[in-house]
Design a protein around this nucleic acid. Structure first.
Lengths: 338, 338
DNA sequence: TCGGCCAATGTTTACGTAAACATGGCCGCC
DNA sequence: GGCGGCCATGTTTACGTAAACATTGGCCGA
């Protein structure tokens, strides 16, 4: 296909339509003050030439890129990829594009690197999906006019933060098990760098304490099913253990397998609750009782929050918590009478 | 913080350093021909002012955005999000940014819409992660100079295509089961719009036929664990069924649950093989034998392919297949002697 | 009837960068 | 010792768009 010309500019359209390029600009941006017949001529010319506005020129002129950057460490956790998807969808709805800024390793340095690169990137705002104690605001210099929204953090005083209500979710999980009659609840935690994990663990501890129950030693996991399996093997050896709260569904899956291999029936002998409600959790053996996270809602709030800052200049920080909901399936039951 | 100035331009740096803005440009782009002492002055001035190059102006001048667009339908499948992650990582390595273009529904219209929007987006190339029979090249007008690489498609004659070697993976799965002594292998397919699913099914059929075995009717799934569960319930009622090949791990999970509920032991009575090797599959009950897909490699080839086109103008199309590998775990065994 | 005003459109300019071209000073060679 | 050439740096210009300002021409009211 012999391409007629590398790129078609407003000037080309203007020439063909017999108007000035400014009139083309007015048509292109939908400004008023162009009479119908002229507008139509311009539109025809645009179509004939296959005109597309040059976004670089627009951005240069307006200082706005209509783009949101998303910094994240990994897409391999359900939450991150689902949140990103929701962000992308809502941003597209508002006419914003998403630029992905992957950070190879979750260290302070690489996050700093991402923020630095950001200065050169064409973004109006940034959403950070990451544990934020990695960000030491004192050493990070954000380019001016770049707004930030953070997921999975407690930095609500410095940034706008959106997150799932981790604490309430954990509380619901533990309360559900206590209500069933379990004396206490064991916990398989996330990795210690994770704020989400930390908060789930804290709420687990608080709920038990508030109910006057003993707090068993937590078992440290790393979100992976494999780590859940290792924890499960140890739990299977705890004669007193009748209820487990795993900090995510993958680890719960590992716990289920360990208990199954050790011949500990779920839920007859031991009840298990997860966190996330990944699509597969309803197909575990047995189907998992878990805490549902609304990632779509988190993504929606992120975009909403960043756009409020970008477009309306609002800089009021604060934390938005998205509610969770316990989904009761078949992995929990009252404890077997001793 | 009283921001000193909204944005710092080369002119500002030039003024402070006492040089011309062109010299600043040369330092900024790393061009030779600037003597050490001058260079240092400029660098100092940049640092003092917090100068960051304006990417919009650069793009306008150079006609290159150093950005790759990724069109995809959903991030909720393991494959898509893992592939995207690899693409983002490799693109970042090459100094390219990734712009996400989510398509709400996988219809021809919305893909067309994405391509149209693309014309206005600041991208040098596009990677499409999607079933491509949705793309009718006759009606799609791509902006000039935008290159395309496609995942999950057979359009190798029109585009550069990168994909997992679906056929070989399925062949390995089926052969493994036949080698164990199973007379034939049942198949739970993906949705019919999926090329990947189609090809796995075709290879399953071909492998059985080539071995002179009977081809049982395939059971249609939709990638979800739930659909696998439904298929599994039906398979549990097939007295002849001793081996099942599910087109992905999620459906295999559903099959496992159905068989478990119906009291059909895996692998003693029925062997199950999946596809994808998601991280959790090693923690299924029992741990799943499955076909490992190297999404990282797919992503790498995508970026490599698109950059070859963008930077070297190569337009030779073709298909790159990334090899798969069977991971044998505990869900397969020889059939019980009749 | 004519001045003024508004609506439609045209002209100029600036956004920040970098290529292309221009300048000036110094060094080496004959 | 003079001149050609080259290296370091400066000046001009263009990329495509859109805001700000300028210019038409027609219509309405006094």
């Amino acid at each position: 296909m012999g391409r007629p010309k590398a790129r078609v500019s407003m000037a080309d359209v203007a020439r063909l339509a017999g108007v000035s390029s400014q009139t083309v600009s007015r048509v292109s941006t939908g400004h008023p003050g162009v009479v119908g017949s002229t507008r139509q001529q311009v539109l025809d010319a645009m179509k004939e030439l296959g005109y597309r506005p040059n976004s670089a020129a627009r951005a240069l002129k307006s200082g706005q890129f209509r783009t949101i950057g998303v910094i994240l460490f990994t897409l391999s956790t359900t939450g991150n990829s689902r949140t990103l998807e929701a962000i992308a969808t809502h941003a597209a709805l508002e006419g914003y594009a998403i630029t992905l800024i992957p950070v190879a390793v979750p260290t302070q340095d690489s996050v700093l690197g991402a923020f630095t690169r950001l200065g050169e990137l064409a973004v109006d705002g940034v959403i950070v999906i990451m544990e934020v104690h990695l960000l030491d605001s004192a050493t990070v210099t954000l380019p001016p006019h770049v707004q930030v929204v953070v997921v999975d953090s407690d930095a609500g005083d410095r940034y706008t933060v959106v997150d799932t209500d981790q604490a309430d979710g954990a509380r619901q999980a533990v309360t559900h098990l206590l209500d069933l009659g379990h004396r206490t609840v064991w916990h398989v935690t996330g990795p210690e760098e994770s704020f989400a994990g930390e908060r789930r663990a804290q709420a687990w501890r608080d709920t038990l304490t508030a109910a006057g129950r003993e707090v068993p030693p937590p078992l440290r996991g790393d979100w992976s099913a494999e780590s859940g399996y290792r924890a499960g093997l140890r739990l299977a050896d705890e004669p007193d253990c009748t209820a487990v709260f795993a900090a995510n569904d993958q680890m719960a899956l590992g716990v289920l397998r360990a208990l199954h291999e050790r011949g500990r029936a779920v839920p007859a002998q031991i009840s298990v609750v997860g966190f996330d409600d990944i699509p597969e959790s309803g197909s575990f053996i047995p189907p998992l009782t878990t805490v549902h996270q609304d990632f779509a809602e988190v993504g929606r709030h992120c975009v909403q929050g960043i756009l409020r800052q970008i477009e309306h200049g609002e800089t009021e920080h604060g934390t938005t918590l998205v509610p969770t909901r316990l989904v009761v399936r078949a992995s929990t039951a009252p404890p077997r009478p001793a």
